[in-house]
Design a protein around this nucleic acid. Structure first.
Lengths: 148, 148
DNA sequence: CATAACTGTAATAACTTTAGTTACAAATAT
DNA sequence: ATATTTGTAACTAAAGTTATTACAGTTATG
């Protein structure tokens, strides 16, 4: 599939901030090194996270970014909404109005899309940033531990 | 977001076949006209649907494609699986192993991905091709009717 | 208060993915 | 035999995503 990795990077960013601890500024350069990308990519995502009040940034010397709330109060759905990374599947372009199917399928698909989006967000809401941080620190996956 | 529209087109294709009725071959040209794309795009997707035994195709004069089962026995999850249209979100590329977060976040995200995928498929499984066809024929959306 | 260290963001380039097209071999009804 | 239709390869075009460069604006700190 298509798929940009912005949500994955955003989770990564916030996990780094959570690990840094409350009130500690982390620089985009540091995060970029962990994610292995360019600092500008990080700063752009931080902009979105900022708008959603998940993080607070500070310009100037000794600046950086820190969490705006504690990791228990941030969940994966918050992040998913902050990064407008959209839909599980895309609609197709303009269909043929002369065909009874082509004419109406789009709006049926749209409804389906909404239903899917709802269950995705509900599921994402079950995982807090805190739990992700813990899973990462415990290298939970190697032990087969499931997130929660 | 990214997102290809293959799933949407596949649903469209199968809805056209469902409307055509059991045992009736439909040509890729006809479907392409409804979807408003090139017949080859349709034939490629039909190939996937064929492999998943959702449709049967016939080459030669008077050939075409028809459903392999009745529309009540096909659901949106079947289609989603047939079109390997993947994940709700993409992972990011190689992270930095020297960072404790970078080193382990990938596999935590993978698990999350699996959980999300599961709820998506479970939800998709609730909608049969039959119900989609009915919704399209009733122009369900204009009436605010929800799929089911 | 000058300086160095940061963020924010625009502009743009490089890369990747997706969709569309052309072309033609193989199959088959009539 | 012939016309039709699928299946698929090869290629082009378009769109989307990520990476990079550059620099203006902010601020801690000596």
């Amino acid at each position: 599939m298509a798929a940009n990795s912005q949500f994955a990077i955003a989770v990564h960013i916030l996990t780094v901030l959570a690990k840094a601890g409350e009130g500690n500024n982390v620089k985009s350069d540091y995060i970029a090194a962990s994610v292995n990308t360019n600092p500008v990519v990080i700063r752009r995502l931080l902009g979105d996270l900022n708008q959603s009040k998940l993080v607070v940034s500070q310009t100037g010397a000794n600046g950086g970014t820190r969490l705006a709330k504690c990791p228990k109060e941030i969940n994966m759905a918050d992040i998913h909404k902050a990064i407008s990374c959209g839909k599980t599947f895309a609609l197709h372009r303009q269909t043929n109005d002369d065909c009874p199917i082509g004419k109406n399928i789009q709006c049926v698909l749209e409804k389906l899309q909404v239903e899917i989006n709802d269950v995705v967000e509900a599921k994402l809401a079950q995982f807090s940033l805190q739990s992700v941080l813990e899973a990462v620190e415990e290298v939970g996956c190697k032990k087969g531990k499931v997130l929660n």
